[in-house]
Amino acid sequence: METNLCVAGFGGQGVMTLGKFLATATCDSTDKNVTFFPSYGAEQRGGTANCFVVISDEAVGAPLGDVMDDLIVMNGPSLNRFIKTLKPGGTLFINSSIVSEETGRTDIKVVKAPVTEMALEMGNSKVLNIIMLGVYIGFTGVVSPEVVWDTIEHKLGKKPKLLPLNKEAFEKGLEMGRSQR
């Protein structure tokens, strides 16, 4: 069993952090093989950012596969760029606040989450990635939510003030993901 996930968006949307939290949680809590591979533009700010997470029972071949089982898309350009890599029957997670739902495909599942709006409602636009991570975990159950939260908590350890907000964001996401199963 191998899951290939691509997370794509604008630089600054926390795309890398999302992928890294998921991969780290998998490493820490399971004996599965897991890889995280980031792909940046040359710019330090803005531009596109995407990363690839592979979770597998066997040794991981390509950390950047040709075909994705799951695709998380945080902005419009990323949808256009990556939609063709999603396998038939695969799941697309979209930030429905700013991404058009027109995928041009009928052979995939679509999980919608208006994470930009949700984050703004919560008073911090930066937590959209944590909400989306919750959505992904809630929908797929690929790793237990408790383990993912432990990882987030550990990584944010230096900024404890942010923990309650992130906890709320993660749980809202989980709920939204679970509800669309």
Binding site: T35, F36, F37, P38, V60
Partner: peptide
Amino acid sequence: GVIGTMMEP
């Protein structure tokens, strides 16, 4: 660059 930038256990 893949081995250098990827993360793995």
